[in-house]
């Protein structure tokens, strides 16, 4: 009885913080003493957010050490250093998207099946259009049924042009033609949609390298971005995706799609920490506007936010 009352007072006190550190702010940081149970619960929260065992242990270890160094005794005091620690991991490799100015930028979008590539490309096209760029999409997923039709519909909605061949055509040829067309039409951004593929399929990864080479031969330093689209609902396998796609085609940044789901996408901490890849955008829905540049602080806040059902 007493406990419950105490908790509700605590809750009202932390109401303003609630949307920021959500569940942790109320139930974990609001719990009082820094006891063993607190550290266990923090570990649990991070693992449940798909942060993974390695990074979780490292983060909890670091935060705990710092808390002890500063002789902290209240759980609430830890919130700040935890946030710092997580933001630090996510920020250390951050790099701007398409830095510098050039006549033609080529963006290659890759990822496993169904991760959200095509939709993210549509959003990205929209993002560029809003900045006054002239965008051309290349439909280099010639494999999946109706992938070309899907991109075409998105191109219409985003009011950008698209270059497409027949289903089954050589994706390298599509890229070649797209870049040629971009030059002829004066487009300054080319975004290439590729077929989803599991990183374990060697032949398909080799095909991706070919696509990359076609772009590299035609435009100086192309592709200027190779974006890996990772599904936020994925767990630890996303690390393998990032590693293998990274090695095969030199991924320059990650797009985290489906962050509007109840999943937290914590695996990107491991991707940033272990592979040093910058996170560039997040996708938060199925419309053209649902894309935002990655914001480490907001992401970290979201890690501990309660899901609607639980609140």
């Amino acid at each position: 009885m007493f406990l419950r009352r105490a908790k509700s007072i605590q809750e009202s006190l932390t109401k303003t913080r609630r949307s920021f550190f959500g569940r942790l702010a109320t139930s974990l940081f609001g719990r009082g003493d820094l006891d063993e149970a607190f550290w266990d619960e923090l570990e649990e929260s991070l693992i449940l957010a798909d942060v993974g065992v390695d990074v979780t242990l490292e983060v909890v270890g670091n935060v705990r050490r710092r808390a002890e160094e500063r002789a902290m005794r209240k759980a609430s005091e830890v919130e700040g250093i935890l946030r710092q620690e997580l933001v630090r991991i996510l920020s250390q490799n951050q790099q701007p998207y398409l830095p510098g100015v050039r006549d033609l930028s080529v963006v290659l979008v890759v990822g496993v099946n169904g991760s959200g590539k095509t939709t993210s490309i549509a959003k990205l096209a929209h993002y560029h259009v809003a900045r006054g760029d002239r965008v051309l999409l290349g439909a280099a997923d010639t494999f999946r049924a109706a992938a070309i039709d899907q991109l075409r519909i998105w191109a219409d909605r985003a009011r950008v042009d698209i270059v497409a061949h027949q289903p089954g055509a050589d994706p390298g040829a599509v890229v070649f033609d797209t870049i040629q067309a971009a030059r002829a039409r004066g487009a300054n951004v080319v975004i290439v949609d590729t077929a989803g593929r599991l990183h374990t399929k060697h032949n398909l990864m080799a095909e991706l390298q070919k696509i990359r080479n076609v772009a590299a031969k035609q435009v100086h330093q192309a592709p200027h971005e190779v974006l890996l689209v990772v599904d936020a609902t994925n767990g630890q396998n996303a690390i393998a995706q990032a590693r293998v796609f990274g090695e095969a085609v030199g991924v320059t940044g990650v797009v985290v799609a489906k962050l509007d789901s109840s999943a937290k996408g914590g695996v990107i901490l491991a991707i940033a920490r272990e592979l040093g890849l910058p996170i560039k955008f997040v996708g938060t829905g199925e419309t053209l506007d649902d894309l935002a540049p990655f914001d480490p602080e907001a992401f970290v806040a979201g890690l501990f936010e309660p899901v609607a059902e639980e609140a």
Partner: peptide
């Protein structure tokens, strides 16, 4: 369900 799904699989399935 995707074999790559992470910790949220439980809540998705429950839902």
């Amino acid at each position: 369900a995707d074999a790559m799904t992470g910790q949220e699989a439980v809540r998705v399935a429950e839902g």
